[in-house]
Simulated assay, not measured.
Amino acid sequence: MPVTRDIPATYRGPGRVVRRLLAAGHREDRALAYLMAGCVLMFLAQLPRLAREAHLTGQELNMLMGASLMAWVFVAPLMLYCVAALSHIVAKLMRGRGTWYSARIALFWALLASSPLVLLNGLVAGFIGPGLELQLVGLAWISVFAWFWIGGMLAAEKGAV
């Protein structure tokens, strides 16, 4: 199923989608594509907020965008690989039967599937700015991301795939 159909399907059942992704076989290129797409979308979501910050403070927008690009496209993927490894170790301690790959897919897919809310969060940060609205959208994103990740990890670590 294409990514554009899998993302809405994840909102109905994250475990089901992760099981389907894992049933397609061990495809490290696909895991990396999910990770990089999610990180690029996270970077793009920052742009409205960065433009607002540059306008209000007089900072150079290109410098802010460069730092955000470096953080999200080069550093964050490495950190997310470490987080996936740690989550797999914790799952193994709790008698999980998944693989390193299944832990990566669960995390990377959760990041990519929750990206519509990240983009909304970026728009709210850029157009409305700090306030209750931004906090509510941020809370919604964190909640959905956690739901997708935990649901995906439960499906991945059951070892039924």
Rank of each mutant, 00 (worst) to 15 (best):
I105Q: 01
T4C: 12
L21S: 01
L35R: 05
L22M: 10
L21V: 06
L139P: 04
A51I: 13
G58T: 11
S143Y: 06
P77Y: 09
L69S: 12
G13W: 04
R5T: 13
I150Y: 01
H55D: 13
F43L: 13
T4M: 14
M1Y: 14
A156N: 08
K92M: 13
V118E: 03
L134R: 07
W109Q: 06
L120H: 03
S87V: 00
L139H: 04
I7G: 02
R104G: 11
L41T: 10
G126Y: 05
L69P: 04
S68H: 06
L44E: 03
Q59I: 10
G131P: 03
F127Q: 09
R30D: 09
M63Q: 13
V90L: 13
V118C: 03
R95D: 15
A51K: 10
G122N: 04
G25A: 01
G98T: 10
G152P: 01
R27V: 00
A110L: 05
A33D: 09
K92G: 12
G15F: 02
K158H: 11
M42Y: 08
F74H: 13
F108Y: 13
Q135C: 03
G152D: 07
R27W: 00
A160I: 08
M70N: 08
R52Y: 13
R27S: 02
M63Y: 14
E133M: 15
L64N: 12
A33R: 13
I150G: 04
R52A: 14
S143Q: 02
D29P: 00
Y81K: 13
M79V: 15
A91I: 01
V161W: 14
T99F: 04
T57A: 14
L35I: 07
A140S: 10
L64C: 13
Y11W: 04
M153E: 05
K158L: 10
T4E: 14
K158I: 08
L21G: 04
K158C: 08
A45C: 06
A160M: 05
R27C: 00
S68A: 15
L123T: 05
S115H: 00
M94C: 14
M70G: 15
H26A: 08
Q59M: 14
A37T: 12
L123E: 09
Y34N: 01
V144H: 01
A9Y: 07
A24V: 04
C39M: 08
G96T: 08
G13D: 14
L69N: 02
I150P: 04
P116H: 07
I89W: 15
P8W: 05
T99S: 15
V90N: 05
Q59K: 15
G96K: 07
L80Y: 14
T57I: 06
L154S: 01
S115F: 02
L136W: 09
A31K: 00
G122H: 06
P48R: 11
L35T: 05
G159I: 07
A33I: 11
A31Q: 01
E133P: 07
L117M: 05
Y101E: 11
T57F: 05
L132W: 07
W72F: 15
L134A: 07
V3I: 15
V118W: 09
A156M: 08
R19W: 06
F127L: 15
G126P: 03
V124E: 03
G15S: 07
